[in-house]
């Protein structure tokens, strides 16, 4: 056996390579099974990243269907409420380069919340049916109101209202929500003013 191998170097090389290939292939296969990183299905991970406004601006009836569609290969830049940060996060997850927001589906705007001008409401329940997260309370011929904490600002209730009594108002920041803003990197740009930070003292 040995002499056969030593005489036929070609055969020996072939055997060695095949042997090594099988060995390492087996090892890798074993390792892939044994040390498998358990992770959520991709649709769920995508759904996690979407803002859950359920607004349908992407053209899908809710965030989950859009997540499913992205998983099937759809573009990732169709979500205006999530904006660039969501696009970046999805791009990061899928390991692709992040495109900018597709303007066709809307622009990134500040977050708003629906308010019903209550004395104008006629109690038609149309908005209640439109709300994707059941955040409007009311009954037929009785005044409706929005549960502000649950409102995602999706805009879907504005359209159906026959008397146009729903306003989308930006969320007002109060003293408890206030947070420090990051300093401006003045020196990295061109400015060399005396103060590197807030100039809004005036």
């Amino acid at each position: 056996m040995m002499s056969l191998l030593t005489d036929n170097t070609m055969l020996a090389a072939l055997l060695a390579l095949v042997g090594l290939g099988t060995l390492f292939g087996g090892l890798l296969g074993y390792a892939a099974e044994k040390f498998k990183v358990g992770s959520d299905p991709i649709v769920q991970q995508l759904d996690e990243l979407l803002p859950q406004t359920q607004c349908g601006q992407c053209g899908f009836p809710g965030c989950r269907p859009y997540a499913q569609s992205i998983a099937d290969g759809d573009a990732i830049n169709k979500c205006p409420p999530g904006g660039q940060s969501t696009i970046n996060a999805i791009a990061n997850l899928l390991d692709i380069s992040a495109p900018s927001l597709d303007e066709e589906h809307g622009e990134e705007e500040i977050r708003t919340i629906a308010y019903i001008r209550e004395d104008e409401c006629i109690g038609c329940t149309k908005c209640i049916q439109a709300c994707p997260v059941d955040a409007i309370l009311g009954a037929a011929k009785l005044m409706h109101t929005v549960i502000a904490d649950e409102c995602t600002g999706c805009d879907l209730c504005v359209e159906p209202c026959p008397v146009d009594c729903i306003d989308m108002l930006p969320i007002v920041e109060n003293i408890h929500q206030w947070q420090w803003s990051a300093p401006e990197h003045s020196a990295d740009l061109i400015a060399t003013t005396a103060s590197g930070m807030h100039e809004d003292a005036a």
Binding site: W180, P183, S195, M197, H198, D200, A201, A202
Partner: peptide, 8 residues
């Protein structure tokens, strides 16, 4: 009176 605002 109005004063300048800066972070500590």
């Amino acid at each position: 009176m109005v004063f300048k605002q800066v972070s500590s």
